[in-house]
């Protein structure tokens, strides 16, 4: 329980390399939120159930509350802050779809849903409602009742397909 010794890590977050000395017990969520000031990754339970803290680690969705920062050493992490187009500032089609299809109320769960959606749509450009539910089954939302979230994912998929065609 005494202060543990720090460990050097290097994590690339949204394309930017960060080298830091951290305590081994520091969670990835706390690292992102409090060390890097990337507050868009929220924390809802800290025990792996709600999915609010979902980020992508090397393209795979992961619960940043359960991962330690040291475990992500050498990895590429993507968070909600990485969704916007960096040059134009435009919202990512997934973000835009959540706005247009009213896929959020309080918005606290939304980054987690959008990151899970990013992973889903990378693998399946035209998911059925069942596939959407399967993918989002590990994300809790207390506000929306999920209907508008499914609509948002459908709209996002459509937009991304259109974008690919043009």
């Amino acid at each position: 329980m005494a202060m543990s010794t720090k460990q050097g890590i290097c994590i690339t977050v949204n394309g930017v390399r960060h080298e830091r000395e951290v305590e081994p017990r520091l969670t990835l969520a706390d690292f992102l939120r409090h060390e890097l000031a990337l507050g868009g990754t929220h924390v809802g339970c800290e025990h792996g159930i709600c999915g609010v803290c979902t980020v992508l680690i090397d393209g795979r969705s992961a619960r940043s509350c359960l991962a330690l920062a040291v475990q992500a050493d050498g990895c590429q992490v993507t968070t909600v802050e990485g969704l916007r187009d960096r040059t134009t500032g435009h919202l990512h089609p997934i973000q835009q779809a959540f706005v247009e299809a009213h896929g959020l109320q309080c918005g606290f769960c939304t980054p987690g849903f959008m990151m899970t959606t990013l992973e889903l749509l990378a693998e399946n450009a035209e998911p059925s409602d069942e596939a959407i539910k399967e993918a989002l089954g590990g994300n809790l939302c207390r506000c929306t009742g999920y209907e508008s979230i499914i609509a948002s994912v459908r709209l996002a998929a459509q937009r991304l397909r259109e974008q690919k065609r043009t």
Binding site: G39, T41, E81
Partner: peptide
């Protein structure tokens, strides 16, 4: 309110 919420920039208290 949505653009700030989907961008992750809304100032929830722990931010």
């Amino acid at each position: 309110e949505d653009p700030g919420l989907v961008s992750g920039t809304a100032e929830f208290i722990d931010n």
